[in-house]
Amino acid sequence: MAKPMAEIKWQELEVGCDVVEPGNSAEYLTGSWRTSKPTTDPAKCIKCGICWMHCPDAAIYQREDEVYVQNYDYCKGCGICAQVCPKDAITMSEGE
């Protein structure tokens, strides 16, 4: 968005609150919702991509060394990646 949401005045809204700027949901960092943080141990990761397939927020990506890690801007900490990892390479730490 051209302006931070909390600064937009009512007169500045589009008719019907249309979103006219494609892709701007990327500006909303849902990672701030997280209460539990997943971390991948690169030594245990076999680069299978099962966590990447299961992540409901597309918040897992493959690094240059092919290890799958989390994008904390969008990871909500649901823990599905840790559950599905066949090598227990992902651990959840509470309160982060």
Binding site: M5, A6, I8, L13, E14, G16, C17, D18, V19, V20, P22, Y28
Partner: peptide
Amino acid sequence: KPIAMGAFAMPEI
């Protein structure tokens, strides 16, 4: 001219 109608609105807006 693609637009999205009926989007989610946060409490801030």
